[in-house]
Design a binder for these strands. Sequence first.
DNA 1: TTGTAGGCGTTATCAG
DNA 2: CTGATAACGCCTACAA
Lengths: 341, 341
Amino acid sequence: MKETTLKEIAETLGISITTVSKALKSKSDVSKKTIEKVLALAEELNYTPNSFAVNLRTKESKTIGLIIPEIVHHFFSNVINGIIAEAGKHGYLVIILQSNESLDLEKKQVALLINKRVDGILMSLSNESNNDYHLKEILRRSIPFVQFDKISKLIPSSKVIIDDQKAAIEAVQCLIDSGCKKIAHIRGPVNPQNAIDRFLGYKKALEKNNIAFNSKLVYTCVDVTFEEGLTFAKQILEEHPDVDGIFVITDLVAVGVLAYFNEKKIQIPQQISIIGFSNWFMSKVITPKLSTVDQPSYEMGVEAFNLLLEEIISHKKNSLFTPRTIELETKIILRESTKNN
Amino acid sequence: MKETTLKEIAETLGISITTVSKALKSKSDVSKKTIEKVLALAEELNYTPNSFAVNLRTKESKTIGLIIPEIVHHFFSNVINGIIAEAGKHGYLVIILQSNESLDLEKKQVALLINKRVDGILMSLSNESNNDYHLKEILRRSIPFVQFDKISKLIPSSKVIIDDQKAAIEAVQCLIDSGCKKIAHIRGPVNPQNAIDRFLGYKKALEKNNIAFNSKLVYTCVDVTFEEGLTFAKQILEEHPDVDGIFVITDLVAVGVLAYFNEKKIQIPQQISIIGFSNWFMSKVITPKLSTVDQPSYEMGVEAFNLLLEEIISHKKNSLFTPRTIELETKIILRESTKNN
DNA sequence: TTGTAGGCGTTATCAG
DNA sequence: CTGATAACGCCTACAA
């Protein structure tokens, strides 16, 4: 099927391309009659402007790129949801790329998006990300750029985050308030800022309550999976049978811990209390229901897009843009895996 | 930051744009020396071809569109994963759009992708989809198009599906084999083909085993949610306390059923057996672990993209393309919510 | 109110 | 081996 072009409309109507172009936009300097004629024919021929040509002319594609570590992940798929919804409202489309938690892949995806000349890039870093040459490249090319969730503090871009440290302190405080004396922490990998901050929060909460920090009680995830939850639960039980509380980096792992304890008929929360992070859907469905920290996901996507849009608009006007950081609120959700309800 | 263009390279090197263009592609009809010079300078200037211009010239954007009902959905996010991964291997990017199970939105998303002139469209229909004017429009414009999972049988496009009816028969047969005499079915909404087929499978399995079909035992989801599982479980218990088996349209709803029965201390599977559909991650994590039908998701994405790619290539060559349908295998997974293991 | 001309950055054709 | 020239389809000064 051949696509209709301005030229065709112009020729069949016996007027110039320019006039057709203007008429389609109902510009004031075209006669009503012409506008009507043009619109009618355009309608009839099913005309849609060739976006490739428009892109080339206007140097923008109304398309943004999104790079996240993993799509199959309750938190991230909710963020995507928020981004796509908000982008749609403003006439933007979203290209989604995954880093699979690999720095190499992440670099490739950034390069792809740069080549594609997307109007802006939204990104949550992979766990491997400990260097940021590729992020600097985005800034160097002055492509609008917003980081969210897992960010690099050193990159001066807009950001949407939560206060991981504060949230972690609150979570651990809950365990302490409910009577836990020996609290273990299953932490995330070494690189991501949020794993570091949650760990720091854990430490600070202990300190505040005059509980000695013991590095032996800290277990470090590599892949942050359900299976690691299983493994660490077993290890904790063997190495520190007197642990009575565990703060886990994220719900997926916490669910693994629960599953292992369920199997071993450990009483939860009587013998051991567990608190997770992120409030995955799954958490309220398992037995016992998992206490956790609710982290806004959809909203994070919305805010991230809006920050990006601000920057895109400012970029178009060539005016200078000062990056902003938006911090969203978290909320402790107490359910059945802790004693304090 | 200004982007480097062919023209710039040509001027600084004192050669023609044409030669630069060819050299960058290392065409055989350019001297080695020139190629080297050009590549070196391009590298130095960080040259990347302007994809907008390339799109316009080549009439393709190496970008496809994907429309799905919901992103926050274990099955679909896995499909997306497969699509993006496979697309990436072949140099394609993916724009993702959600229909939110709304026909109106679905139509808008189709229009968006058509305007965007994506090279092809991948789609799983919304539950509301009972008309296909918008799908016909895709075909009319001869845009490569593949349907997967929730499809319209009437649209002659390539498809990737499972045999829902057969899988449902197998699932219900499992319940019967394990001794269930009165089996209820919580079915999906009225429109989607897969809900219809699973319902038909349920009916056929009963028939095959000389169990009378009773329409009172069929409950119809509207939104296909966890909450509906809760509600229908309650209803079943009240209206038909002697039901001893339930075949549920999908795991999410089945988990709701489980949750309600757990709360009511109904013995599963002793009193009532439950089998779900789709094998969500959640299913193996709850107590009791849910028996279900495993449905390939990642693989479905991969196959769908490859079918689309075939069609895109054929379309480029202007050769005619005959739609193909790929049917993937399902597998019964027996866990703790049924008696037959 | 309408139209002419030039250009966005590439690629393809064809001649030198 | 190299380059001039003409598109691709649209937009926008500027001229008529």
